[in-house]
Nucleic acid binder design. Structure first.
Lengths: 187, 187
DNA sequence: TATTAATTACCGAACATTCGGTAAAATTTA
DNA sequence: TAAATTTTACCGAATGTTCGGTAATTAATA
């Protein structure tokens, strides 16, 4: 019996895991094949434009996940802003597996990657900024302050992921999430 | 005539530039050869253990540069703490070319790199932390506060470099340097 | 000092391996 | 059966690495 068709989602998850940890150049077709359970040629059936299209799909997948989870939590008017912030940060914790996962933006923004994915990364980061600006405004900060805070959040998340990995200490990421919450709620 | 010896420093500078912008996997021997002016085989004459040894040398070179410039400026007792801080941040600006350069730690800490250079990156980051703790103490912060501030500095520098690159906006890095200065001097 | 040996600095060419990618056949699904 | 999907088998190019060798400088020897 021939193996059953591998689900799209499982494929994307496998690709994501590899690109995320290896970066664009570091992700080899062999590893991508092993992680997805599809042979190289099968991957090319699903992604005729090859590696680049695979990474593209990963970027879209993460973008969707962030929209459906992080941003949704932050903007869900069923809850008051404080709760939304907490929920959003909790989703971010999940996104980066408590600091164990690298950010896809980072993984795909080294030289060879940045030219290919510049646009998506730029767009993605701007969406983070505008969403966090909104939660800032909802928490009664002036627009300009909210904008600065949003930038600060983005920088601290990215920075703490790097330092977390560099020092091999997960608590750094966790502390950063707590600090972000305090920054918003102390005023 | 025997070709003149290519200066060690010139080689390291070329290697640094490539590893920094391309990452470990992305840095090809061809590119490293072009950047240094040495043919591949000659690079192997200087670095018998190949690519890994080259990246290792880059890490050491940057570490030395940071010690001789950034840390030296921060710890130079000929100046008062405020001035030292300003000078240190100015050296950091130079190190990252105002936000145009990637951090070598980041470039060499993707999966394939992190296993090889884990130790050096860990050690390097801890040196940043302890040095910035010292300037914090010199500015009359309690040891614990100074420690937290040092971590914050490291995170913000790393994060702002990522976001600067992702958004293609140099002012983000510059603003972060200003913010760091304010964080230290406002209390 | 003159001669010899060892070392240094470099390079062209080839090495095995891995890379991303493809054509065609086999298998499954409908 | 026809279309869709996966596989095997393969490719050219690029990768990191090594080999064999040249020429100049340095060190040791006599």
């Amino acid at each position: 019996m021939r193996p059953q068709k591998v689900l799209d989602k499982e494929i994307i998850i496998g690709l994501t895991q590899v690109f995320r940890s290896r970066g664009y150049e570091g992700a080899s077709l062999q590893e991508l094949s092993e992680a997805t359970g599809l042979k190289k040629a099968s991957l090319y059936h699903r992604f005729p434009n090859g590696k680049q299209q695979m990474a593209d799909a990963v970027l879209n997948y993460i973008n969707e996940w962030v929209n459906d989870n992080v941003f949704q939590a932050l903007l869900n008017n069923d809850f008051e802003p404080k709760i939304r912030l907490k929920n959003g940060l909790s989703q971010i914790r999940t996104l980066y597996d408590g600091g164990n996962n690298t950010c896809v933006f980072r993984a795909l923004s080294m030289q060879a990657g940045i030219e290919l994915f510049e646009e998506q990364i730029n767009k993605g980061m701007n969406e983070w900024l505008s969403t966090f600006k909104k939660i800032g405004v909802a928490l009664n900060f002036k627009p300009q302050e909210a904008e600065q805070k949003a930038m600060q959040v983005l920088i601290e998340i990215q920075g703490s992921l790097i330092v977390t990995k560099g020092l091999g200490d997960i608590t750094i990421f966790e502390n950063t999430l707590k600090n972000i919450e305090h920054h918003y709620l102390k005023a």
